[in-house]
Design a binder for these strands. Structure first.
Lengths: 351, 351
DNA sequence: CTCACGCCAA
DNA sequence: TTGGCGTGAG
């Protein structure tokens, strides 16, 4: 039996708005920890993962795991019947084939009850590997929305390149090309895995725009001792992230290309390392861009999906992009007591 | 080589928004004085003329005349990628087949670069005759938008009648008729050519759009000495606007039908005479309506086009309508350092 | 024929 | 700023 009391119906409304175009039916898996939803999008290219912690509810009770198969379109319609600030109570019996929704106006002088039919959905709960990523970009969610929307006007896909210089979104279109460079904000730098070094493990790119950066990188390694000056800038401010001297002599790194993050994090961040790797963004100033990077990444994605993902911007003021080469991108919107995450495989070959 | 730095991308954005539905491809002719664009609308009924003075840019450099053929749709898309307050830098090499646009965020931590393909467009630079008009109406651009939008709901066309009383916009629709009378605002009156007289000197009007101008031109040349009255009007608010009697008898014009524009331009536009014809409105109080008239005019235009023109309202707070009987209407939005003007032939016969 | 996006009005 | 309508694409 599920009984969950949500202080504001608007969270659910926005959540549904965010995913209803990606997925038509999905199971809301309820258990004592909260409610999660995982689903492949209709074309099985992207994966959505939503979590609402039990703590995000004013009251939450779920005796035993309960999968609620809902048609998201219906759910959206029903939710539209709630005012944003209505208290929203979800109820379902253990064997129920309906989900009951009750909307109570703040002043309680209006109570609306809806019952939505449930459906059985194959519960292929996907296991999402807990990946370490080579790069993480934290930015205002509105900025991300803006960028993907802009670039989607020009072409179908975007290449995302994370270098020490910042993160670059590149689109090649029929009529026009575009590229947007976001530099790390001043003051957002401490996070810094970014400094390491970047040799040209991935300089394959013959592309024009980046050579500036490349040169820089090369210089960097060329004179590692000085290295710190440049990248030092971003991380050093607070010490704990300083790479160990041996680290600095990083020319050696090239031997292993992957796994860097792993070795990295171990040594570096005893305390919060992993955390930051994932949820570290907490300390990023509002509106700031933060780049954390162990090595260059250069990936191409379908803009159509990113645009879709970016509809979640209303749920969180910032978004994190987690990337490793040849690995699905993770786009994560974290809010107070939950998150919505999207996974999208990169385009391969270079189209 | 062109390099132009615009303080606010929004000017360009609004400009493109205003004309992109009228024209699909056009040459932006750049020279040391600035950038101009002239184009017939897709159905060759209306003509758009845009001018951006070099002085309107924070920095402007154009060594030699450079026609940039752009697809306005692509240009619009690329401009959409700029935030309104981005600094916008346009660059093109002399032989370039691309136009480079750079958008710099105010705080410079975001730099976007776009390259838009250029195209060759037949540079049939239309010569716009520097006409003298019998009547000029200056009014708030929002008011004009409102009027044409309102009337377009009733019917296809509007008859504009300028008399001493004011300007009247008349629509005959299936279901309803409407007419809106704007009187000259108190305080805007000094301009005053309005009183003259209005007979119906030229009711012939069998030609569509161009001959109107032609005649006018002819007239113009025919009686240059009197011509001044009109443009004089704007500048010197009184007296000079009286039409000479002889001018009125302009039936003579019809002899040549084509080529007029060409011949016309030479003589006409050298100086700024046109200018006054256009910018004379400077001394009209904000929000005021001013009517200047040498003789009555009574013309009918397609509302569809006027509604389109009125999209430029965001570029200037006031608009001027310049009219002579049987001559294309000139709708002019003048802003600080440039203008956007539309020419539209009157409907003939009375439909 | 249905869905999704962009434009326009409240 | 949000919702409805019309247009274009799949």
């Amino acid at each position: 039996m599920l009984e969950a009391r949500l202080a504001e119906a608007s969270i659910l409304k926005r959540l549904l708005d965010a995913i209803k175009e990606l997925v038509t039916d999905a199971n809301f898996e309820c258990n004592e920890e909260g409610i999660v939803l995982q689903a492949m999008d209709n074309s099985h290219v992207a994966l959505v993962s939503v979590k609402l912690d039990a703590s995000g509810f004013k009251r939450y009770r779920c005796d035993r795991p309960l999968p609620l198969g809902v048609n998201l379109n219906s759910f959206t319609k029903v939710l539209k019947c709630a005012k944003d600030d209505d208290v929203c109570i979800l109820k379902a019996a253990d064997d129920a084939d309906v989900l009951s929704l009750t909307y109570e106006a703040r002043n309680s002088d209006r109570i609306a009850e809806y019952e939505m039919k449930l459906m059985d959905i194959d519960a292929d709960t996907l296991q999402i590997p807990d990946t370490e990523y080579e790069a993480r970009v934290t930015m205002p969610s509105a900025e991300f929305s803006r960028i993907v929307r802009d670039l989607s006007q020009l072409g179908e896909s975007v290449r995302i390149e994370v270098t020490k210089e910042g993160v670059r979104f590149i689109s090649d279109g029929e009529a026009a090309n575009g590229n947007i460079l976001l530099k790390q904000s001043e003051g957002a730098a401490h996070a810094g895995a970014s400094s390491k070094r970047e040799e040209d493990e991935d300089e394959e790119a013959e592309d024009e725009e980046d050579e500036g950066e490349r040169k820089q990188k090369r210089k960097t390694k060329a004179k590692k001792e000085k290295v710190k000056k440049e990248d030092g800038a971003e991380d050093e401010d607070d010490g704990e992230f300083k790479a160990k001297p041996e680290n600095e002599g990083d020319e050696d790194e090239d031997e292993d290309d992957e796994a860097l993050s792993k070795k990295r994090k171990k040594p570096t961040n005893n305390g919060k390392p992993a955390k930051k790797a994932k949820k570290g963004a907490d300390d990023v100033p509002e509106g700031a861009v933060r780049i954390e990077m162990n090595q260059h990444v250069n990936l191409t994605f379908s803009l159509k999906y990113l645009v879709n993902f970016s509809k979640s911007a209303s749920l969180a003021s910032s978004v994190q992009l987690m990337m490793s080469n040849d690995v699905p991108l993770l786009v994560s919107y974290d809010f107070d007591t939950g998150y919505i995450r999207y996974y999208l495989a990169p385009k391969i070959g270079d189209d």
